[in-house]
């Protein structure tokens, strides 16, 4: 049976009818065609589908679309504003924090959430915060540096 939901994604309201079992990630990818949010596993382990829901990082494969009714989502497509890269995006490019790019959106969404909670994380804190996100390409080395770059830039901007 179809369920009507209204969700704001990257500032734009979407109303749709979905099956009760539709995962939020499938809604984002299939209904909204926002394919920057990726699916890497079936067990909420890889974090490739990480987005922000009402300001907090969540794995969108672990939330049903109906649960997100009425909420505000930000996906990777909503990270840059007015054509300017978010400092996190810039950090990943400057520090070579991505190779194949598949885990990258989820990594950046998890990392921006971390910096909201902890604007100047230590390397250890960064590594712990990324526990829910797999990367198979970079060995995480440059992802850590990318997040440090973003933290530096964001702190500099707000100082």
């Amino acid at each position: 049976m179809a369920n009507k939901i209204s969700i704001t994604v990257n500032g734009k309201m979407h109303t749709a009818e979905v099956e009760a079992r539709t995962l939020l990630v499938d809604f984002i990818r299939e209904h909204l065609s926002l394919t920057g949010t990726h699916i890497g596993c079936d067990t909420s382990s890889c974090g490739a589908c990480t987005i922000h829901m009402d300001g907090k990082a969540i794995k969108s494969c672990t939330v049903l679309a109906v649960q997100a009714d009425g909420s505000e989502l930000t996906t990777v497509e909503g990270l840059s504003k007015n054509g300017e890269l978010h400092p996190m995006q810039e950090g990943f490019r400057e520090e070579h924090g991505l190779q194949c790019g598949f885990c990258t959106p989820g990594m950046m969404m998890a990392a921006t959430d971390l910096l909201k909670r902890n604007p100047s994380p230590s390397e250890h804190e960064i590594r712990e915060a990324l526990e829910g996100n797999f990367c198979r390409c970079t060995g995480y080395h440059n992802i850590v540096k990318s997040i440090q770059y973003a933290a530096g830039k964001m702190n500099g901007a707000t100082a």
């Binding site: 996906t75 990777v76 995006q89 490019r93």
Partner: peptide, 9 residues
């Protein structure tokens, strides 16, 4: 990188 970091890969 640009297409990957903006979700356009």
């Amino acid at each position: 990188d640009k297409r990957f970091i903006t979700g356009q890969g």
